[in-house]
């Protein structure tokens, strides 16, 4: 077997910028590409003194031996990665695929919902459902037209695609929960809805499907350290039980998830994260580097705080 951790780390082969805060990284890791299943995630360390960042696997190519990660630059580490991670550079660490793969077989009709950054990790699920013979309805939500990405990839694997934007600049005007309503009206025989996105969005999706008693799976991404079930930082409340998202999930029954608990726990290190980001941004300024790609766009740098999971707009 070839070494999985060459001294040089894990090479980034390609990168695509979807917006001023969202970018994808294609990482060379043949073993991971071979093992990855839809619904799983990885933990990335960009450098030796970095933190461990859980990221859902957005795509994998077993032939090329690559996995694709989509990152939103919201904190110090992800903004730093946005600056540093270019094709030809390497990640210090990437481990996975972690978590229990999403079961894809045996479904006749499914709705795959992705909001904002969640659009990326819902893609392998949509493709997987399609490969397993299901009728796949994609519901994608973005804030506005120029933030839309991967619509073509979804069109290739979805039987129907419902595109939603907050401002109606493309597709229907509304949130993904509105898109789900459209799908439910059009189809009375939906087996399952799978939703990935910000917690508030997944909560809205679960609330939308609850009256229709449609099984709804959400992918949770709480704060993690090891990702192997050892620290319990990612514990979530599912019904009356406490589960670890890293080894018991990340997929859970959306109708049982205590989203308020999840969102509260996501704010755990808000102050420290903001301090780290402020300090880093100040360093960048002193070094006369541009902190991010497009300044003054109103989404990233102008408000130095992290997006609050409570306030984050549905669908992006």
């Amino acid at each position: 077997m070839t070494e999985t951790t060459p001294a040089a780390g894990f090479r980034i082969l390609a990168r695509e910028d979807f917006s001023d805060v969202t970018y994808s990284l294609v990482v060379h890791h043949p073993l991971m590409a071979k093992a990855a299943q839809p619904g799983q995630f990885v933990i990335v360390m960009s450098h030796e003194s970095g933190e461990r960042i859980p990221l859902t696997i957005a795509d994998f190519d077993r032939k090329k031996g690559t996995v694709t990660l989509v990152v939103q630059a919201v904190g110090k580490s992800t903004k730093e990665m946005q600056q540093v991670c270019q094709p030809g550079t390497s990640l210090y660490g990437i481990v996975g695929p972690m978590g229990v793969p999403s079961p894809l077989a045996g479904k006749k009709k499914v709705v795959c919902v992705g909001g904002g950054l969640g659009v990326a990790p819902i893609y392998p699920q949509a493709r997987g459902f399609k490969e397993n013979g299901a009728y796949v309805i994609g519901v994608l939500g973005f804030r506005t037209k120029n933030l839309v990405f991967w619509a073509d990839k979804f069109r290739a694997c979805c039987d129907e695609l419902i595109l939603c934007t907050d401002d109606g600049s493309v597709g229907m005007k509304g949130f993904v929960s509105d898109g789900i309503k459209v799908a439910i009206e059009g189809h009375k025989d939906i087996d399952e809805v799978v939703a990935i996105g910000p917690p508030i969005m997944m909560k809205a999706c679960a609330d939308t499907t609850r009256p229709h008693a449609i099984k709804t799976i959400v992918s949770l991404n709480p704060i993690m350290v090891d990702g192997t079930g050892m620290c319990g930082g990612c514990r979530v409340k599912i019904g009356n039980e406490v589960k670890f998202a890293c080894v018991d999930g990340p997929d859970f029954d959306g109708h049982k998830v205590d989203f308020n608990d999840l969102m509260m726990r996501l704010r755990r290190y808000k102050e420290e994260e903001k301090a780290a980001l402020d300090r880093w941004s100040e360093n960048c300024r002193i070094m006369q580097q541009k902190p991010t790609v497009v300044p003054g766009n109103g989404t990233g740098e102008s408000s130095l705080g992290l997006p609050d999971p409570f306030e984050e707009a549905m669908g992006g």
Binding site: E3, T5, L31, M32, A35, G93, G96, M98, T228
Partner: peptide, 9 residues
Amino acid sequence: ECNTLVGRL
């Protein structure tokens, strides 16, 4: 071999 989650990789 670090960064290797046996069972999953």
